[in-house]
């Protein structure tokens, strides 16, 4: 008997007005697998993650998590279903009215009703996992550098021991060294804790490092899915152009001269 995929997307479609953003996405992500979706800006990568999380509703198709259809859940069911997820947002999306530790412990206090003392202890432990010391815990997010904000965002994403974590552009806006530090943290968090990961990025070095498989989204469709190691020899001219960052090729940018 084959194992039920952790996430299964079947013919998922989403449009905004006349613009088709997701045009029949079908993808399986196995348990403890790390899949990276690459694609240009505005191709619908973030929309796909938001549809899975229920922040946006898919127009049609089915989204299953552990075999359960979560495409159109009611608010209370959605809150329960989202306990399986953690997410690292592109800009961190840290709550600037709360100190760092409360950001990390937010899901524990609000979602799991853990008392504040224990939640703070767990937050400091989780901050240590992403290389941040306890003195950072009392700071406000605005007092942190971009790299530290990403680490706090990562700590918040994994603090509740989620089964699935989404990474939205985890290395965007960071210098190459800090980007690689974040990649290493993601790999260690995902591998050590057996987390299923779905990431979206433009950064090919990051995609190859954190992904087991890579899928390319273009014009609302997944045009290529393959092993992360084989992305450089994909035999797909679209993937080839994207991976090598060439202006010339089948992907035409809308530039007005």
């Amino acid at each position: 008997m084959t194992e039920v995929p952790k996430i299964r997307l079947t013919d998922v479609r989403k449009s905004f007005g006349a613009k088709k953003v997701l045009d029949g996405i079908t993808l399986d992500v196995a348990k403890a697998e790390s899949v990276v979706i690459i694609g240009g800006s505005g191709t619908g990568k973030s929309v796909l993650l938001k549809c899975i999380l229920g922040i946006l509703l898919a127009d049609s198709g089915a989204i299953e998590v552990d075999g359960e259809n979560v495409t159109h859940l009611r608010a209370a069911q959605r809150e329960a279903a989202n306990k399986k997820f953690g997410m690292l947002f592109q800009g961190g999306a840290l709550f600037d009215s709360l100190p760092v530790w409360e950001n990390v412990a937010f899901g524990l206090i609000q979602g799991e009703h853990m008392n504040r003392k224990d939640a703070k202890h767990r937050a400091i432990e989780t901050l240590a996992k992403v290389g941040l010391t306890a003195d950072v815990a009392e700071l406000s997010p605005s007092e942190l550098s971009g790299g530290m904000q990403k680490r706090v965002g990562l700590a918040r994403a994994i603090a509740g021991a989620p089964e699935i974590v989404f990474f939205d552009e985890p290395t965007t806006g960071l210098d190459p060294i800090m980007g690689d530090v974040i990649n290493d943290l993601i790999v260690s968090c995902v591998r050590n804790q057996g987390i299923t990961a779905l990431s979206i990025t433009h950064d090919m070095a990051s995609a190859k490092k954190i992904g087991d498989r890579i899928a390319m989204l273009y014009q609302g469709k997944l045009i290529w899915i393959g092993d992360a190691k084989s992305v450089d020899a994909s035999d797909n001219e679209y993937v080839d152009q994207f991976v090598h960052g060439r202006a010339e090729g089948p992907i035409k940018m809308q530039v007005r001269r």
């Binding site: 922040i55 329960a80 899901g107």
Partner: peptide, 8 residues
């Protein structure tokens, strides 16, 4: 959106 992902 982050609130939603944190089941809040």
């Amino acid at each position: 959106d982050a609130l939603t992902t944190l089941s809040t």
